[in-house]
Amino acid sequence: MREFAYLRAADVAEAVELAGPQGKYLAGGTNLFDLMREEVERPERVVDISRLPLSAIEPLPGGGLRLGALARNAHVAADDRVRRRYPVLARALLKGASPQLRNRATVGGNLVQRTRCRYFYDLTAACNKREPGAGCDALGGFNRTHAILGASPNCVAVHPSDMCVALAALDATVNLTGPDGERSVPVTGFHLLPGGTPHVETVLRNGDLITSVDLPPERPWHGDYVKVRDRASYAFALVSLAVLLDVRHGRTVAARIALGGVAHKPWRAYSAEEQLVGAAADEAAFDRAAAAAVAEARPLDHNAFKAELARRLVRRTLVELAGQS
């Protein structure tokens, strides 16, 4: 590990000031410490925000719920309001990592966790994300776990989060504080596709600090989070899926579908949603939606199965949720 300056902020304003454009915020440390030990992340200064009062889970006027950026994944998953009103989020959180990690990991940290692409971790491999312009060893290498949607020739890494897939389906909002004040970004616009700049992963800039995430008022959703992985626990998704479905009198009035493990960001399958809304909630519609969800898939050498897996998961989950309506 390299030497670095460790600073502790007394409040949000001081944290933003101390971090400056190059600093790294330290919350749970479950991802940052690993990356620093491997020297994939080499911050000159680390600003510890773990003691800031950002861990509350509070109701919002108008019926939503605000998750403090420092709320632990385990606390959010166990919160009675989250479990009752946003079960898709609780399920996603509980399917991520291990109990030990969930006890440390925070909402804000989960949003900005970095890809688990092994070439990103291996300093002797070429990686545009780590070193812009270096090339991508994953593209022609071992890419079974990599992206099938929204990738570019510069980067085929996937975002590893389960929580963010549920947040994308819920249309959550991320609240930030930066040098120029506060702003809010929809979570679906928070993460970026790799394009020509895979090292730029989110809209955060110049020391922006995530302060909270807002969940919108609940709807009468039937929802679920499903995850396919290489073992029963403690593994990243091959494909995961958050679905919210509102079916009334046999017709789908609203639907949200978000996929994990398939793209550089939590992937909202808008075209699949369009196939559903206003149509009869039947298997034909679900088949169309499932096909639409992966219509744009561009598999690599080792991950063609992901498209078929995603299609089957979308279809089955819709059938099951419609059966509950």
Binding site: R118, G141, R231, S233
Partner: peptide, 29 residues
């Protein structure tokens, strides 16, 4: 069901040199 040391055949590099990627059974398995 899960164990395999994965090799990048171009370079001989082991690409899953860690327990996050080289899976062994958990209690749930």
């Amino acid at each position: 069901l899960m164990e395999e040391t994965l090799l990048d055949e171009r370079s001989g590099r082991i690409v899953n040199a860690g327990l996050a990627d080289y899976h062994i059974p958990t209690h749930a398995d």
